[in-house]
């Protein structure tokens, strides 16, 4: 996990980079950014009323069946979504007004050893967990065979996606 030397008074970096298996919650007007998602999935949660936002960069679908998930909830779709939601509520968000946007979950390779597509499994796991928690997915840009870099504007909940195949520009969700 990244460590920011967060001493009082020190400036917050902008954009804040959210690496693999990390998530970040904020009520400030900053940008959260995850680079080069392939089969990994970005889950962006936003509560427009309180302005509390969170971005997770998850790597694997299922934390509940993995004993490591306690120490590293951000690694798995299910545990990351729950941890983010809890922390967002603690930061002032209203559970019922949180909305989700997801991006990533490509399947770049067709190796036999991969078995079921790894990207799709991340997308399915996130959908299932969000559905279980009653958080609506209001927009998504998932699947395919391309990498994506995402920027989540925590001031208004816009998720901008830069895809390697779409050189013309940025998709905004």
């Amino acid at each position: 996990m990244k460590t920011y030397g967060s001493e009082p008074g020190a400036p917050t970096p902008d954009p804040i980079q959210v690496g693999i298996s990390e998530f970040y919650i904020t009520a400030e007007d900053v940008t959260l950014k995850s680079y080069g998602l392939g089969s990994c999935l970005a889950v962006a949660l936003y509560d427009a009323d309180s302005g509390v936002a969170g971005l997770a960069h998850v790597m694997l679908p299922d934390g509940d069946s993995n004993e490591d998930s306690d120490g590293n909830p951000g690694k798995f779709a299910d545990t990351a979504i729950r941890a983010m939601l809890r922390q967002m509520v603690e930061a002032g968000a209203t559970y019922t007004s949180v909305e989700a946007k997801i991006a990533g979950g490509s399947d770049m390779f067709e190796f036999e050893s991969f078995g079921e597509a790894v990207g799709k499994r991340n997308v399915d796991a996130a959908r299932e967990e969000l559905d279980k928690l009653g958080v609506p997915i209001v927009a998504e840009e998932v699947g395919g065979q391309r990498g994506r870099t995402v920027e989540f504007d925590a001031s208004n909940g816009t998720l901008s996606i830069n895809s390697s195949e779409d050189e013309s520009g940025v998709t905004e969700l």
């Binding site: 693999i20 680079y35 080069g36 998602l37 392939g38 089969s39 990994c40 790597m59 694997l60 490591d68 690694k75 490509s106 399947d107 770049m108 390779f109 067709e110 190796f111 036999e112 050893s113 991969f114 790894v118 990207g119 991340n122 391309r146 990498g147 994506r148 870099t149 390697s164």
Partner: peptide, 27 residues
Amino acid sequence: HSPPEFIHDMGAAVIDPVVIDLGENQE
């Protein structure tokens, strides 16, 4: 080894599927 898979994409995105596959069983 398998047949080659060609990729032309963002650096990190190219390798994360492999990391994910290995990540099922190792840290």
